[in-house]
């Protein structure tokens, strides 16, 4: 034990002295420069396919969209592209529909984080206990996530249909009248209707994530807490919740990115209506790109979406998920 530690210290010392030195190998001997070169060769060979795919499928479209967003163009390859600089972006900034998109996105994010995730967490905690039929509940709650977005949306079109739909039928039996124009037909309720359907589809995913995270927490910890006299709430608050941190941070991340990019569900459920009341950035982009043949402006919208997602992802990784991610990278650094 002692000798191992000492040797590591020695190696580290050497490495500092002979900079740039080959990184230490696992057995502590120094790497030959040729071996290092061969290492790089291996890395390049193995990375090349992924890098190529990433460039072609991710980087190139981003660059292309950024380029297109500077033009007025109807999308036809043979049609002229008129350079307009940043006009598309200044139009975007003053477009009330885009403002509304941002507000809708924010509302959906707040609702997801404030309602959907806590609900999934609560269910996960319940289903972590010995409940009769636990496996059945878990399967049933997870099932909606397996359905495609379009199928879910079509299903709920029928459920939320005015008067005839299941929702209004049940409410009617309870003596409650649904909204006068139906859940998806009035501007006041449509966004909440959409959120309801999103929640129905995705809470199961988050529940399973939390459940898996919860099961990764060693039993000894809760046991110890119990011995120390902690009640159920204290155990949850002081032991379970902190240890679920990494899972919760991932689940929040998925939720927010999902809300920024939301398209399919809204498109089938409401088409963004009535009168843009449930429109998201992605729907607006589709409207301009495919309905109005304003590919330049649509590209500008897609760039805005990209930047928002990108900035959010960067900040989130940097500020929130740093603890979770850093462990992984420092280990990597050491090994190499």
């Amino acid at each position: 034990m002692v000798s191992e530690t000492t040797r590591q210290q020695v190696v580290a010392h050497d490495a500092v002295k002979t900079k740039p030195a080959a990184p230490p190998k696992a057995d502590g001997t120094r790497q030959h420069p040729k071996a290092r070169l061969r290492n790089w060769g291996t890395i390049i060979v193995f990375l090349a396919p992924a890098l190529l795919l990433f460039s072609v499928l991710v980087l190139a479209p981003i660059v292309l969209a950024a380029y297109n967003s500077l033009f007025r163009w109807n999308g036809y390859k043979t049609s002229p592209m008129e350079f307009v600089g940043l006009d598309n972006f200044s139009r975007l900034i003053s477009d009330p529909i885009f403002h509304a998109d941002l507000v809708h996105g924010a509302i959906l994010i707040v609702l997801s984080l404030g309602v959907q995730l806590p609900m999934a967490l609560g269910l996960a905690m319940l289903l972590n206990q010995r409940v009769w039929g636990r496996a059945i509940y878990r399967t049933v709650f997870f099932a909606p996530y397996v359905l495609s977005e379009v199928i879910t949306a079509v299903l709920f079109l029928m459920v939320l249909s005015p008067d005839r739909g299941l929702a209004d039928q049940i409410l009617g039996a309870l003596g409650i009248d649904g909204p006068a124009q139906g859940w998806l037909g009035s501007r006041a309720t449509v966004l909440y209707g959409v959120f309801f359907v999103i929640t129905w589809k995705y809470f199961g995913l988050h529940m399973i994530l939390y459940l898996a995270g919860r099961q990764g927490i060693p039993h000894e910890l809760t046991e110890a807490a119990a011995i120390d006299g902690a009640g159920p709430w204290q155990t949850f608050r002081r032991v379970t919740l902190p240890l679920l941190g990494p899972t919760i941070r991932i689940s929040v991340f998925l939720s927010v990115i999902g809300a920024i990019q939301l398209f399919d569900m809204v498109w089938v459920l409401t088409g963004g209506g009535p009168v843009n009341a449930s429109e998201t950035m992605a729907v607006t982009m589709f409207q301009y790109g495919f309905r109005r043949s304003e590919v330049g402006y649509a590209s500008a919208i897609s760039m805005a979406m990209f930047l928002l997602s990108f900035i959010f992802a960067l900040l989130y990784q940097r500020l929130v998920m740093r603890r979770d991610v850093e462990g992984a990278t420092t280990v990597m650094r050491d090994v190499r």
Partner: peptide
Amino acid sequence: QKGFLGAKYDTPD
């Protein structure tokens, strides 16, 4: 009809 703002043309409702 009720819910016309959310209605489509050729769906069952």
